[in-house]
Amino acid sequence: MQTANVNRLTPYLFMAPALIVMAVALMYPIGYMIYASFLNWNPSQRIGEAEWVGFSNYINLLQDDAFRESLWVTLKFAAIVVTLEMIIGVGLALLLDRNIRGMSVLRTIFILPMMIAPIVVGLMWRYMYHPTVGIFNRTLKSLGLEPIPWLSDGSWAFTSVIIADIWQWTPFIFILSLAALQSLPRSALEASRIDGATPWQQVIYIKLPLMMPVLIVTLLLRLIDAFKVLEVILVMTNGGPGLSTEILSLRINRTAAEFRELGEAAAMSNYLLILLLLLTVAMYLYNKAVEARAARLRAAAGGDA
């Protein structure tokens, strides 16, 4: 009896260290953040001295126009950049999925933007967008065109940060899609070619559907990242002009550092966390549904045979 108990416990005992590390490293900070979001806490206080205010941070935020605007900017930003990056990234991967000489060099060059530190990317683009000495406006002027207020007009500034983000993160999607493409079963492609499928038909009916699981994970990763983007925008516009490029993580940063409201910043982070969690769950459910459908189809096909 005793031995049986010990035996049953053994796996848990072996797992315990990992579990403890996990709990401390992952759950503690999140728990801390959730706890902090119920406090009226300024950074000059220790957390123990902060006043408990219940849900008022969450409620105040919902009524705060600046927060709502910032949330809207974030949603708009994430939707636009991820859509465009997916289209360009997957498109590039489909184009470059062939034997070209010097392919490995090309691939390295394509993923360079991703490897540059975000602060540097921000600075680089800020100088390129500079109203007088920046390369864009100098080129426009030398062509006899009107200079564009890249960063000094609200909607242009929003466009400018989108361009910078696409430049930096399209390679991420490109490299993952390319890997997915190259691991596709050659037999399926060959079969379709023998059946007389055009290259377009191959892309639409074979390649994309087979790549879908990878694409969904890629999309999810990019989406999560796009919601959390901070440094590039911080350096390029610092949220301006007005609030036109003030994405949520920038607002969180300012709330903690400039407004000195750690509780409110924590509440904002939790809203962001909830949003991302919902997205992840939705993706997961979608994936499940697709898999279930595939399984049903397979079962039906098996029945026919």
């Binding site: 609200g154 301006g240 609030l243 400039e258 407004f259």
Partner: peptide
Amino acid sequence: IPTWGKINADIGTSMSKVLTEGL
């Protein structure tokens, strides 16, 4: 005053809107 950070930021973004968006 301790509340200045928040008010300062609000003045700043509102002024920016006056300067760039014609508010």
